[in-house]
Amino acid sequence: MTGREAAARRHALVCVAPTVLALGALTVYPGIWVLWLSLQRRIPIFDVSRFAGFENYAFLAVDPRFWSAAHTTAVFTLGSVALEVVLGVAAALAINAQRRGRRVALSLLLLAWAMPAVVGAKLFEWLYHPAAGLINVALGRHSINWLGDPVVALPAVILADVWRTMPFVAILCYARLLAIPADVYEAAQVDGAGRLATLTRITLPLLGRILLLAVLFRTLDALRAFDIMFVLTGGGPAGTTETLTVYAYRALFQTLQLGFGSAVSVIVFALVMTVAWAYLRLLRTGTVAA
């Protein structure tokens, strides 16, 4: 290594150091601490603090509430991401086909996306209100207890989430649509492709890669979703909207089981990392051409 290379290397290390330090202090250190906590029984108000090995995890394996929360998380993630992709692509295509008012449509979409999750959730809390909510009034007083009925509560929460996050998918897709050159469509027209063929043979395949990216982000967010159900239902009725993160919060801060709650968080972390890894592999292998 020449002196110049060594200097460049030192310079690079100095430049990277702040990021490494910040990530270490804010991510790695707390992460390892949570992992360590999850191997303990620790309940500060009772002065309990002892090493317990995998006791917390062993209990989680047979804990019905944990499995119910895992099931709710899976349904919420699949339902909301699927709806968001379908509606997002539809919205992007609709805006792209529009001649006028694109800006207004985009601003309206962004408005929903830019709204803080808690504000959006509060909005839906009023829309869903069993007596005074706009939805029930519009339904002509066929009063449905949207957030209080164990059967409709989860779909209602999913719908609120889709409203807020569908614009994310729509805007990503719209940006990709703008980048598709017009000659591709002209060539298709010359070859006699109809509207449906153009959509399924050209537009959707070209959207593939960006959609995969959007789905990755949305899946990771949905797996960690907390604010929307916390505000709308608090995990109720009867725990039917309790996701893993809400369960972890309850264990950690409502019953102050620091060890047990950490074990739930570690599982959420492992789940999110696995999904992220799988998607990234899919992106890298390039099975979806773009």
């Binding site: 029984r41 309940i43 009772f46 309990v48 317990a52 209990f59 047979v62 804990d63 019905p64 509430r65 009925d149 164990p150 109720g236 009725p237 009867a238 725990g239 039917t240 019953t255 089981q257 047990f260």
Partner: peptide
């Protein structure tokens, strides 16, 4: 209790589940 009241779980099942959790928590204390 809420699950038993709205009919998501049978009462016996709800009590058994609550008991299992409480035992796990109390056994630490």
């Amino acid at each position: 209790f809420s699950a038993a009241l709205v009919g998501v779980k049978r009462p016996e099942r709800a009590i058994a589940d609550a008991g299992k959790r409480l035992n796990f928590f109390l056994q630490a204390i």
